[in-house]
Simulated assay, not measured.
Amino acid sequence: MQLEIRPDPAEVGRARRWARSRLAGSGIAADDPLAETLILLVSELVTNAVVHTGCPAVLRLSLPGAAAEPAPVRLEVADLSGRAPVPRCVDGDATGGRGLALVDGLADRWGWSPEGAGKRIWCELDRCTPPRTARTCGTALPVYGGLAYEAV
């Protein structure tokens, strides 16, 4: 399954809606923590493609069917920019620059490879492994680098 993305920030919301609509036949419920993590990863990778490349992109999802063995869910975003994705170190007041750190913290695996004149960034989520979370005040928080974080 794939969706072509225009270099427009409004495409991020469209990509999230498209990904949610694809979950129904995959055996992943819309309120499943895996679904929420997947949608966050879609948002981060598509945002990176739209904001940092200014080029069209293609979003691909591999969602194994409900009857399949627990196979990983794979998300890929291919764009026409040859610039490598570079995780950034940002201070606490920065309003951006944390996308790849989120991908690294939430995905079971991720990477990138050159593709023609551009590149493909991918990540995978294992269906059989519960998402990494920490509990605080009754709320599950994602864990990154051993620390729980919350977007506010």
Rank of each mutant, 00 (worst) to 15 (best):
L141T: 01
L80W: 14
S81K: 02
E115P: 02
L102F: 13
A35F: 00
L141R: 13
R83I: 10
G13H: 08
T37K: 00
L40I: 01
A101H: 12
D108S: 06
G97S: 10
V50T: 02
E124Q: 09
A19N: 01
V86D: 13
L125F: 12
P142H: 00
D79M: 03
A29V: 00
G111C: 13
A57P: 14
V103D: 00
P7T: 02
R88G: 10
D31E: 15
A94I: 08
C55T: 14
L147D: 14
W112G: 00
A117P: 12
A71G: 04
D91M: 03
L40C: 09
W110V: 01
R98Q: 11
A49V: 02
D126W: 09
R74D: 07
L40M: 09
E124T: 05
V73F: 10
T139A: 15
V51D: 15
R132A: 14
E124N: 09
E115W: 03
A68I: 02
S21Q: 11
Y149P: 08
S21W: 00
G13W: 12
P131L: 09
L75E: 08
R109N: 05
L102Q: 07
D91K: 03
A148H: 01
G27E: 10
T47F: 14
R132M: 12
S113I: 02
L34D: 14
C55W: 15
R98C: 07
A67P: 14
R20I: 00
A24R: 15
L141A: 08
G96K: 12
S26W: 08
A134L: 03
G97A: 07
L102C: 10
G111W: 09
T136Y: 15
D104W: 05
E124V: 01
G118D: 09
T47L: 10
P114C: 03
V90H: 11
G13Q: 08
G145P: 11
C55G: 10
R17C: 04
T133C: 04
